[in-house]
């Protein structure tokens, strides 16, 4: 089932087009919304929540029309905004419980639920402290907790790892991965940090200049086709490389004992050819696998493609 379906959606700020005629269909699970600053990611999120009216096009969030069902959508969706948004003078429990009450939870249940989600987000006893005394990492966790408090079916996380140290980032990504896998909550992570998306998402959509540059599941986006093979040898061996090239392989990269070879011309017999070359050169083959691009490469390739078009 699709969590979000968008058809020819355009969002304008006056004369400036922030989202330009985009069409996509996002599946369940964890989806990454990638793009540089100003790509239109946050505007798209605002439009999906009904904060900004589209200039044209249609969209559905969890089967609800974005033009007519803003409140119903917001009942089922949790938003973790990019900007800090904490009320000074109250503690995290009060803050999260208040947002739960705003979502319609009775006060007694909201306070209990606030404790639960804050514990889940790792605030522990710190949840009784005043919000203004928290570190950036804690503030990010509170933002996540308030998005989760009313039990949304879809979470929209805008730059969730902003300002976090490596450990805090790891913990936040683990939380996101946990929520989005097997908990019945779909998550959309908007970020300009490719490794974050690569780490937690199953599907990605790359935006640039308000348009969708590319989209697809992470595995297929990272795949460069079935012919590029990464080979690891026990030690560098020129004879192995020569044997491979003699059999039709095209050397792409050689870095010590690590090789990347295009084996398009020997489709279907790659493994056999590799073993033959290893035997002939008398070297030990430690492993080989299809080459995968990083999300950064995917992003750059998408941008190059768009520039070329």
């Amino acid at each position: 089932m699709s969590t979000i379906t968008v058809n020819n959606l355009t969002v304008k700020y006056g004369a400036r087009v922030a989202v330009d005629n985009v069409t996509f269909d996002l599946p369940d699970g964890c989806v990454g919304l990638l793009g540089p600053n100003g790509a239109g990611k946050t505007t798209l999120i605002k439009c999906l929540l009904g904060f900004v009216a589209p200039a044209s096009g249609t969209g559905k969030v969890l089967g609800l029309d974005i033009a007519t069902s803003g409140l119903a959508i917001r009942q089922k969706v949790g938003l973790m905004p990019e900007l800090d948004c904490h009320i000074p003078g109250i503690n995290a429990v009060t803050y999260v419980a208040y947002t739960g009450e705003l979502a319609g939870m009775p006060a007694s249940l909201a306070i209990g639920r606030a404790h639960e989600v804050l514990e889940y987000c790792g605030l522990g006893e710190a949840r009784y402290r005043q919000v203004e005394t928290y570190s950036t990492g804690m503030l990010q966790r509170i933002k996540l907790a308030q998005a989760l408090v009313h039990g949304p079916g879809l979470l929209l996380l805008d730059e969730p790892t902003n300002g976090l140290d490596p450990r805090g980032r790891e913990e936040m990504l683990s939380l996101i991965k946990d929520i989005s896998h097997g908990k019945g909550v779909s998550v959309i992570v908007s970020s300009h940090l490719m490794p974050d998306i690569e780490r937690v998402c199953d599907y990605a959509i790359v935006m640039r200049g308000g348009k969708v540059a590319t989209s697809g599941d992470i595995a297929s986006l990272r795949s460069v086709g079935g012919y590029h093979v990464e080979i690891e040898l026990r030690e560098p061996c020129a004879a192995f490389t020569k044997a491979l090239v003699d059999r039709g392989g095209r050397l792409l990269l050689e870095a010590g004992s690590l090789l990347q070879v295009d084996m398009q011309h020997i489709e279907g017999q790659q493994a056999a050819v590799l073993f033959q070359a290893a035997k002939e050169s008398g070297t030990q083959l430690r492993g080989f696998r299809a080459v995968q691009r990083s999300m950064e490469d995917v992003f750059l390739a998408a941008i190059d493609q768009e520039n070329a078009a």
Partner: peptide
Amino acid sequence: VNALMVYLSKP
């Protein structure tokens, strides 16, 4: 403190 965005993201 940008709290309006959080409040109005609720129904």
